[in-house]
Amino acid sequence: MKLYQDGDLHDALMLLQCEFVAQRKRVNPADITWLQYDILSSLRSGATMPSSLSVQLGISRSKLSKSLGELKSLGFIEQTPSAHDRRELQTSLSDKGLHLLHDIDDQHHELTESAVSVWSPEEQRSFANLATELVSVLREQRKQQR
């Protein structure tokens, strides 16, 4: 069922995605890949196993393993054997990784300031709610595709 007119929704989503990609590239002081940023961002909520990360991010274990190796060699993550299964590595942010995310967060404040300058408080809440709802649906679809 098509609810949008003349591609307005499609066009708006594609333009927004392009702008977010441009912003992300601009605020990346360590020149890490998008996947590496996603991994670091996911680890912000706490240590986890690679198996959980691959499901959350919707990527293969081999692709994740390569990125984790690169992040570890850059000093952005730490890995220790799991207490429950020594074959699995508990993966967490290092202090250097946490500092990198804080630096990136500082740069992202410009994006928030732009939104605040354009939208009323009610529009900001509405956008936040709609974006959160869409992200939730996209993540669930990705999990089901695995």
Rank of each mutant, 00 (worst) to 15 (best):
S41G: 00
N129Q: 13
T80M: 11
Q56S: 04
G7L: 02
R125V: 01
S82F: 01
E70L: 14
Q90K: 15
F127N: 05
K63F: 04
E70V: 07
A115V: 13
P29N: 05
S54Q: 14
S94T: 11
S52F: 10
F127I: 05
L53T: 04
E110N: 09
M49S: 12
H108Y: 11
T33C: 02
R142H: 03
P29E: 09
D103Y: 03
A47I: 06
E140S: 06
V55Q: 08
G7R: 06
L43P: 03
H108E: 12
H99M: 10
Q124S: 07
A47P: 13
R86A: 10
D105R: 04
L15K: 11
Q23R: 12
A128H: 08
S54M: 13
S45P: 00
M14S: 10
S117K: 12
L16D: 00
D8R: 08
L111Q: 02
S73K: 05
F76R: 11
Q145P: 00
Q36T: 03
E140K: 06
K66T: 15
L64H: 03
S82T: 12
T132M: 09
C18I: 00
E70K: 10
M14Y: 10
H108A: 09
G7N: 09
Q90R: 15
T91I: 04
A22N: 06
T91S: 08
D11A: 12
N28T: 01
L16H: 07
F127M: 14
I32T: 05
T132I: 13
W34F: 07
R61N: 10
S92Y: 01
V27D: 06
A128L: 04
S51H: 08
S60E: 15
R44D: 10
T48Q: 06
D106C: 04
R139N: 11
Q17M: 12
A30T: 04
T91G: 03
I39C: 05
N129V: 11
P50V: 00
S126T: 03
I77A: 03
D11G: 07
S65G: 07
H102T: 10
G97M: 01
G97V: 02
V118W: 14
W34D: 13
P50I: 00
R139M: 08
M14G: 00
V27T: 12
K96L: 08
K25T: 06
Y4I: 00
S51W: 08
A131Y: 11
M49D: 09
Q90A: 06
E122H: 12
E133A: 14
S60A: 15
A30V: 02
D85Y: 09
D106T: 05
S42H: 07
M49Y: 11
E88A: 14
I32G: 02
Y37S: 13
K25P: 00
S67R: 13
D6K: 15
I59C: 12
P29W: 01
A47Q: 08
P121T: 09
K96S: 10
T112Q: 07
Y4N: 06
S136P: 00
M1R: 11
L130A: 15
S67Y: 01
V27S: 09
A47D: 08
P29Q: 06
R61S: 11
